[in-house]
Design a protein around this nucleic acid. Sequence first.
DNA 1: CGATCCAACTCCTCAGACAAGCTGAGAACC
DNA 2: GGTTCTCAGCTTGTCTGAGGAGTTGGATCG
Lengths: 222, 222
Amino acid sequence: MIRRHPLAEQAAEELLRRIGSGEWALGAKLPGETTLAAQLGVGRSTIREAVRELAGRRVLESRQGAGVFVIGHQAAEDWDQVLRRADITDVLEGRMAIETEAARLAASRRTPADLKSFRYTLKDRLDASEKSPDDWYVEADLAFHRALVTAAHNTVLSELFDAFVPRIRTTMLDMLRLDDQHRHRHDQAAHVAIADAVRDRDPELAAGRCREHLAAVRSSVA
Amino acid sequence: MIRRHPLAEQAAEELLRRIGSGEWALGAKLPGETTLAAQLGVGRSTIREAVRELAGRRVLESRQGAGVFVIGHQAAEDWDQVLRRADITDVLEGRMAIETEAARLAASRRTPADLKSFRYTLKDRLDASEKSPDDWYVEADLAFHRALVTAAHNTVLSELFDAFVPRIRTTMLDMLRLDDQHRHRHDQAAHVAIADAVRDRDPELAAGRCREHLAAVRSSVA
DNA sequence: CGATCCAACTCCTCAGACAAGCTGAGAACC
DNA sequence: GGTTCTCAGCTTGTCTGAGGAGTTGGATCG
């Protein structure tokens, strides 16, 4: 499906290109709207929309009466995009970094509420692994991993994990569509084992089992 | 410094709020520009700028002739913002997750070019630790850690690390300003030890030493 | 029933007008 | 001389009206 970009978007790309080329350094003031409009051969409102779009991406900032200023060299990373482009092996290794560390921390910090989450999500996952459609199973699996990360009680790790979720979800669905050997009891056992290690407050064991599980996933897709 | 938000920004916030509240589901079509303008009591161009801002944040998408549609439940995470808001301990634990995994992978994948980077950056770091101003030392330290992550040859880990760099930089500078006990030889020795473990292709040792080093940093700020 | 046409709706772009806010130069004052 | 005040000239912010371009769904026709 082709898609012609509106002028405002083209103008935004052009501005981004010029910023990237160093024409305007960080903190520099862009020419006025009327000047830019004349330069690019478009109307002032078009320039305004282009600037507004880049403002939304944290590249520009406009102050009434003063001007438009560069506040970021490049567009704020769109993680969804980055992860979608990245190799699946790289993504899994990123996930491994986050989740094994989360498992380690969870083993020290888990609360009774966290353990309850484990019980519920593991039960859902077991139920879903037997008869539910693929997407239910995927959501149940993600719910357990989410609970594990939550138990680490670290906002940064939680946000990192959330950034990975969309990519993990689509990949799992693709894999299940091709072959469904992945939804085996062995898998459930591995998840239970991680939860047990966290419950028993054994950081090294929890991290090790988590790493082992994700390494198995990695080798199954490679 | 106070700052009154322009109407267009307020309108964008309002739209984001309504999307978050479930008024418009993912994929739903928003009312037309004129309708929205009347609802919020602003002009059409103001609504257009608000929509354009959310389009830049990958929340909305407008198609000429069709309408404006929701393509994301929430604004794409601005990582710089998230990390700046997060607790420093949480940030360091996130860094620990990324770098120890990177060290582990680097031990398996490091190339001769990677080893050369280690030598150069370690030398720079040693020089800077003795007489250079704070910001030079910080950059030299970051350069070594960047080289370590690069040696993992994983794009996701590299991008994750880059997202952390600005926050790490400002934190280190703040700490050095308060007391400069941190720039001790012990520190340099720890860095050399990590590089050696990577050079000797020992994943567990590299990861362990990396974890140890970052844990020391964590306890020094807590 | 299927293909075609078309009217109504949508967003896209422009131009012009005025309001609101910032900045720097020069006047006025101490 | 140094400080404060004032204001003209810039900037962005907002609204309106007009037309252009694309999409959609229903009416019409074969």
